[in-house]
Amino acid sequence: MSALHYPTPPAVSLLTSFLKRGAWKGTLPRIEARADAIPTECAAYAKVCGFAAPDPLPLTWPGVATVGLQLAIMTSPAFPLPVTGIVHTRQRITRRRHLRAGEALSATCVVDGHRVARSGGEFDLVVSVSSAGEVVWEGVTTILTRPIKGHGGEREAVDAPPPTGALVRSTRWRVPADQGRRYAAVSGDYNPIHLYGLTARPFGFKAAIAHGWWTLARALAELDADVPEACTVDARFVAPVTLPGTVTFEARRSPEGIGFEVRGRKVCIVGRVVG
């Protein structure tokens, strides 16, 4: 096991991570990173994502505030896979209570092994955010990586099925061309696939795409008060939101919770909030 204790990866690690190439066989080792403090000032972030207020902290903010931890793991020498070409496929968030601006929060992030999926390997980055020793927020970020060979079998059923129940929200978002750049400025995620069409094309995209974290955050901001204080969110990223674009957001309430979907020409995100 490797234990890291810095919130952001050193540039040299980032560079060497890009140099990792080729297929990889083996088992991902357990790597843990820890940050004694994470930022809680997120007014600009809240605005870009459409949250009404930065306090209490937006449900997705701890995930963004700990991206540095996640990168620290994925760029550490002990992590055998390249950081390029990874795909954020699923996000699970559990919030025990509201987190307040100015609250002293610490975080840990752990990766421990992987699974073989249809088109590659999947691993989970498990982030736990604590306040005064008590875990108040947990996030599981599932990443697909191609250097691990997939089993090539049948496409897995989407875990979060299309929402059913009574329609409670249905609205359209016009996502502007600069959305990726605006989000990058407040999240620090300057992945070129989100910035311009020109910078996205070398990575196989015809146009820039919105950050998955932004799309999820925007969806949760739209649900607003329908998201209870203590809740679990499970979202599956099915296809990216192409920039610029117009998508439809729909949410349906059922006894199982609130299911939501962001859809452009095809489904982009499907998820559920359970209180």
Partner: peptide, 9 residues
């Protein structure tokens, strides 16, 4: 789609 709208925060 979009007709039902979405409540203001």
């Amino acid at each position: 789609p979009g007709n039902r709208g979405s409540a203001w925060p």
